[in-house]
Computed example of a mutant assay.
Amino acid sequence: MSRHFECERIDRIRLMSEQRLFSVVRSIVDELSSERATRLGMEQGLMSLWDEFAAQVAVEQNDLFEIYEEYVESICMTAARKLPTFDLQILALFSDTYVEWWLDRDEDRGRDPSDEEVAEWVGYDLFALVLEAAEAEGNLFLEGVMHSV
């Protein structure tokens, strides 16, 4: 097999992994969007937990921001643990944490990462993507507020 073919195959696997990650992120956002904003002292006028989280990510002004963050991170970790082992292993291969683990594993040569480690890496990736989505949506929300003033 040619090197070009191998690189193309890896690129396709990476693309499929990213698509899978984004589909899980979408389901997390949908879950948060379906939760009413009735807890944690939500801002008035926001309809869902996702709306509130996105607004809080954009401004980080509420004293309860860490609670929002921890709650959403726990949802991401739970979503990762629910994924099939094969999905987790493939998704983890492209995480920054896997690269760090692989580079630092001199003393652990021959040891594969545990399922729990892999789920944690994927959970952190999911959380980072959810934060990016929340920041983008929160900024749009703030722009709308600024234009209405």
Rank of each mutant, 00 (worst) to 15 (best):
P113L: 09
W101S: 06
M146L: 05
F5W: 15
M47E: 15
D104W: 08
S95L: 03
R20H: 13
R105Y: 05
S95Q: 08
L93Y: 01
E69D: 05
E52G: 13
S95M: 06
G138K: 00
V122T: 02
E116Y: 02
R3I: 04
M1E: 07
C76K: 06
G123F: 05
D87N: 11
M1S: 12
Q56V: 04
L83I: 05
G41K: 04
T78I: 03
E117I: 00
M77E: 04
V72G: 07
R109A: 13
R3E: 13
A79L: 05
Q19Y: 00
D96V: 13
D63A: 04
V118I: 14
R39H: 06
Q61M: 08
A54Y: 00
L103W: 09
E73C: 02
A54K: 11
R14D: 12
A134G: 09
Q89P: 01
E66V: 10
S74V: 01
R36F: 10
D125N: 09
S33N: 14
R14Y: 12
G45Y: 10
I75L: 15
Q56D: 10
V25W: 10
R14L: 08
G110M: 03
A58E: 09
S33I: 03
P113K: 02
E73G: 01
A54D: 05
L103E: 14
L91A: 00
F65T: 00
A92S: 06
G138V: 07
G144C: 05
E18Q: 14
K82L: 11
E66W: 11
S148F: 06
R26P: 07
L32S: 06
D112L: 14
R111V: 13
S114N: 07
F65M: 00
L91W: 02
V25D: 12
W102F: 12
E135H: 13
V25T: 14
F94W: 00
S95T: 15
Y124H: 11
F86Q: 14
E31T: 11
F127R: 01
E117W: 08
E73F: 05
V149C: 09
R14S: 10
G110V: 02
V145S: 08
W102Y: 15
V72M: 09
L103Y: 14
L93N: 07
D63T: 10
T85M: 05
M47W: 09
Q56A: 10
D96E: 15
S148I: 09
E6G: 07
R109L: 14
R36Y: 05
Y98L: 11
R105F: 06
I75W: 01
I67H: 05
V130R: 12
F65S: 00
G123V: 12
E117K: 04
R111S: 12
E143N: 01
D115M: 03
I10K: 14
F127Q: 05
I90M: 13
A80Q: 03
M77V: 05
N139L: 11
I90Y: 07
L88Y: 03
E66F: 12
L49Y: 15
L140G: 04
C7Y: 07
E69Q: 02
E70R: 07
V59I: 09
D30F: 00
L88Q: 12
V57A: 04
Y124R: 04
E117Y: 01
S17T: 15
S74K: 13
V118L: 04
T38L: 00
V57R: 08
L49Q: 07
D96W: 01
S17F: 01
S34M: 02
